[in-house]
């Protein structure tokens, strides 16, 4: 068997959720790595879109920011930012919005705005950027993040982007027609919302992970599916693709030092 880290497992499990038919609005960080591993392995025809306006981009190295030149150089076309948000996102053309999160609750609501009170914050985080409308206008939303008690909390401090609210059909009640978060991929497990309550439920644990490990790194009482699967370990091709991509990325960003 291959040796792999929990983070590599997370990225690879996330990449497997994407297909060549998807039009994916890519968040920076973990989502960006997963989306590009998908493109370089089983989903060569996936359309990757970054909010800087690049459509159908195929970067050779992972961008440090959503607007690196590499994204534009390899894109099918690059549009203005208003066009990106109006025609492409609001227009309903995005199948998957892929987000990371600083803080998340069991219903997939995300906070990247503040820790503490909004007006007198303990920590002022960057804010939402494109996320509020990615969460409401993408046909569905995937989320990926490493588990921690600080990140997965009973109650988030601020609703940067709306998942399923308090659960059930709250999206519908607010006039949001899209599906919202349908998949959460962490470094330990794959989670899907309960069909009724919409609470994220563990459906698959990564190789070597126990229920206790999942619970110890999560701030709410975890629900497990009745039939719990084991996530297939990364294949050699998946691991090599991810590691090569990371190595190219590191070399490229270092090369610009000085």
């Amino acid at each position: 068997m291959n040796d792999f880290t929990p983070n590599e497992m997370m990225t690879i499990a996330a990449s497997r959720a994407l297909t060549s038919q998807d039009v994916c609005f890519v968040g920076i960080g973990a989502p960006s790595a997963a989306c590009n591993v998908a493109r370089l392995t089983h989903a060569p025809d996936i359309t990757l879109i970054y909010e800087s306006g690049t459509i159908g981009t195929a970067p050779d190295v992972l961008p440090l920011s959503i607007g690196d030149g590499e994204l534009c150089d390899t894109a099918l076309t690059t549009v203005s930012v208003p066009e990106m948000f109006r025609y492409w996102l609001q227009g309903g053309r995005i199948t998957i919005g892929f987000l990371g999160a600083a803080q998340i609750d069991r219903f997939g609501n995300i906070n990247t705005t503040v820790i503490g009170d909004y007006h007198t914050p303990k920590v002022r985080l960057p804010g939402g950027g494109g996320a509020p409308e990615i969460a409401s206008s993408s046909q569905e939303v995937y989320i990926t993040m490493a588990q921690s008690k600080r990140g997965m909390v009973e109650k988030i401090d601020f609703f940067t982007s709306f998942g399923h609210g308090d659960g059930g059909d709250q999206r519908k009640k607010l006039g949001i027609e899209t599906k919202g978060p349908t998949l959460l991929i962490t470094d330990l497990a794959i989670w899907k919302p309960d069909p009724e309550t919409k609470e994220f439920t563990v459906v698959s644990m990564h190789p070597g992970v126990t229920r206790e490990m999942v619970q110890e790194t999560c701030g709410w009482k975890v629900k497990f599916a009745d039939t719990l699967e084991e996530t297939p370990a990364p294949s050699e091709l998946e691991l090599k693709t991810l590691r090569d991509l990371k190595a190219r990325t590191e070399a490229a960003h270092k090369g610009q030092a000085g």
């Binding site: 609001q90 409308e133 409401s136 709250q170």
Partner: peptide, 26 residues
């Protein structure tokens, strides 16, 4: 949000007093 600011700039360029968007829900 980005969507709102992009719309707000576009409205400014278009000489409109405000921008409307399907945004901020929830």
């Amino acid at each position: 949000s980005h969507a709102a600011m992009a719309n707000a700039y576009e409205a400014g360029a278009a000489g409109l007093p405000f921008a409307a968007l399907r945004g901020y829900r929830g």
